[in-house]
Amino acid sequence: LQAFIKTLTGKTFTVEMEPSDTIENLKAKIQDKEGIPPDQQRLIFAGKQLEDGRTLSDYNIQKESTLHLVL
């Protein structure tokens, strides 16, 4: 599935991932794409901060969901 990552500066980019991917995997993909170390990334979806060990499906993240990236 493709999801949108929106930063506080208003920049939006897309990442490809599977519902079974962990938040940790997602942070690694963001690092590959944007060069931001995972330990500096905080991802917010539906008002909740996402925990590394959980999966996208745990948070009911669907295709074309928008996640907010806070540094």
Score class of each variant (00 low, 15 high):
residue 71 L to T: 10
residue 62 Q to E: 11
residue 32 D to N: 10
residue 19 P to V: 10
residue 69 L to V: 06
residue 3 A to I: 15
residue 21 D to G: 07
residue 10 G to C: 05
residue 59 Y to A: 03
residue 29 K to I: 09
residue 64 E to K: 11
residue 39 D to I: 08
residue 60 N to D: 09
residue 22 T to L: 08
residue 41 Q to E: 00
residue 1 L to H: 06
residue 61 I to F: 09
residue 16 E to R: 07
residue 65 S to Q: 09
residue 25 N to D: 12
residue 69 L to F: 06
residue 54 R to I: 05
residue 42 R to S: 09
residue 23 I to T: 04
residue 13 F to V: 04
residue 11 K to E: 08
residue 36 I to D: 02
residue 71 L to V: 12
residue 10 G to K: 03
residue 6 K to E: 07
residue 9 T to A: 12
residue 15 V to T: 02
residue 2 Q to C: 10
residue 31 Q to A: 14
residue 38 P to M: 15
residue 17 M to N: 02
residue 60 N to Q: 08
residue 7 T to R: 08
residue 48 K to Y: 09
residue 47 G to D: 05
residue 58 D to C: 03
residue 23 I to E: 01
residue 57 S to N: 09
residue 22 T to D: 02
residue 66 T to E: 09
residue 6 K to Y: 09
residue 31 Q to M: 13
residue 16 E to P: 09
residue 26 L to Y: 00
residue 70 V to R: 09
residue 15 V to N: 00
residue 71 L to I: 13
residue 24 E to R: 14
residue 65 S to Y: 09
residue 11 K to H: 13
residue 10 G to H: 04
residue 57 S to Q: 12
residue 58 D to Y: 15
residue 12 T to Q: 08
residue 42 R to G: 04
residue 61 I to R: 03
residue 29 K to Y: 08
residue 28 A to L: 15
residue 36 I to L: 05
residue 58 D to T: 04
residue 36 I to Y: 15
residue 66 T to P: 07
residue 63 K to I: 08
residue 63 K to C: 06
residue 56 L to H: 01
residue 42 R to D: 05
residue 11 K to T: 07
residue 36 I to E: 01
residue 30 I to H: 00
residue 44 I to S: 10
residue 18 E to C: 11
residue 20 S to G: 12
residue 62 Q to W: 09
residue 56 L to E: 01
residue 22 T to S: 08
residue 53 G to L: 08
residue 24 E to A: 15
residue 48 K to S: 09
residue 20 S to L: 09
residue 38 P to V: 15
residue 15 V to A: 01
residue 46 A to W: 09
residue 56 L to K: 00
residue 6 K to A: 07
residue 11 K to I: 08
residue 7 T to S: 06
residue 1 L to K: 05
residue 14 T to H: 07
residue 35 G to V: 02
residue 15 V to L: 12
residue 28 A to I: 13
residue 51 E to K: 07
residue 71 L to N: 07
residue 47 G to R: 03
residue 26 L to R: 01
residue 4 F to N: 09
residue 63 K to L: 08
residue 71 L to D: 06
residue 12 T to G: 06
